[in-house]
């Protein structure tokens, strides 16, 4: 990185550290921080969509839709996250490849399952084995987002379902009295008011999601915990210009600070969101806000 970094063994103190912290390997750590943040930024809204769809389905008047919504939350919430991550992602990936295989290689005669092997034609590989590594990594990332969204969507569905049921019945009755259709009642009265009841549960989920990101490594994505372990491990002078002992404790300390800071920021944001959503609500917090405005 810096011109003086050519022979780190001659350097000391901060100069050495500035070289050490800017190696290509450390860039991996910094990139992974963004990977984690990006994952959260994409997964949270996606999971919310899954949750909203699940909750809406679960309270639908159409029976098969209701069964679908209820079994989604029941099954996904019941399976341990790790089992889900290990099994589901491989199954999902193979499912995609199987579908592509059926479309792209109809003439293929060999069996797809050969003993332990899962063999599809080259054109059906996802991504193609000729694709550059970054496409493979993006694909793995998309699979990760999808898996996280399905898992956390199931929990969110239950939270939102509860939120929908917590909206005072009088509100919906009034809407009906005004002649609103069930659809209008749902979108104009129920949905805007349910968030305040769902927020405590959703904020819990968000916190759990932040802490669940190290599961990424199970999906073959190099997250910050992987890099912290890799960078912190003992480094022999034979294989690196920056030999050091077991420094994992310092890297994990960095992770601790990172996660604590991140959850603290989340708490502050969620706090503000609660105040904002309480406005005009028939809850104790909403009542308090009304009094403050009057005073």
């Amino acid at each position: 990185m810096f011109s003086y970094c050519t022979d780190p063994s001659q350097l000391e103190g901060l100069t050495w550290l500035s070289c050490y912290l800017t190696t290509g390997k450390h860039a991996g750590l910094y990139v992974s921080v963004f990977t984690v943040l990006l994952l959260l930024a994409v997964t949270a809204p996606t999971a919310l969509v899954f949750g909203f769809a699940g909750a809406s389905a679960a309270r639908s008047r159409i029976a098969p839709l209701r069964w679908l919504g209820k079994s989604y939350t029941a099954i996904v919430r019941g399976v341990p996250d790790i089992a889900f991550f290990l099994f589901f992602v491989i199954a999902l990936d193979q499912g995609f490849e199987w579908l592509r295989h059926q479309v792209k290689c109809p003439d293929w005669t060999d069996p797809i399952r050969q003993g332990n092997d899962f063999v599809v034609c080259d054109a059906a590989k996802l991504p193609l084995s000729t694709a550059p590594q970054w496409i493979h990594e993006s694909y793995a990332f998309v699979l990760a987002v999808l898996t996280f969204a399905i898992v956390f969507g199931a929990f969110a569905a239950n939270v939102l379902y509860g939120g929908m049921r917590a909206v005072p019945r009088a509100q919906l009755e009034t809407a009906e009295a005004y002649g609103m259709t069930p659809r209008q009642t749902f979108w104009r009265i129920l949905v805007p008011q349910m968030w305040i009841y769902a927020l405590p549960g959703l904020s819990n989920l968000w916190m759990v999601l932040i802490k669940a990101t190290p599961l990424l490594f199970l999906l073959g994505i190099e997250d910050i915990v992987y890099w912290a372990r890799e960078l912190g491990g003992t480094k022999n002078a034979k294989f690196t210009d920056y030999p050091h002992g077991d420094w994992r404790i310092w890297y994990f300390l960095f992770l601790l600070v990172f996660y604590l800071a991140f959850t603290r920021v989340s708490e502050i944001v969620l706090e503000r969101l609660t105040v904002r959503l309480s406005r005009g609500q028939a809850t104790a917090a909403g009542e308090k806000l009304r009094k403050e405005v009057q005073a």
């Binding site: 190696t23 290509g24 390997k25 991996g28 084995s129 890799e230 690196t240």
Partner: peptide
């Protein structure tokens, strides 16, 4: 394209001197 086969080589990258990640972040 069919001839230009790309073979993907899987390794652990944590077992010096066999395979490890070097300072540049590459497998070495």
């Amino acid at each position: 394209m069919a001839f230009a086969d790309t073979v993907r080589m899987g390794t652990e990258g944590a077992y010096a001197p066999w395979n490890f990640v070097n300072d540049a972040g590459e497998i070495d």
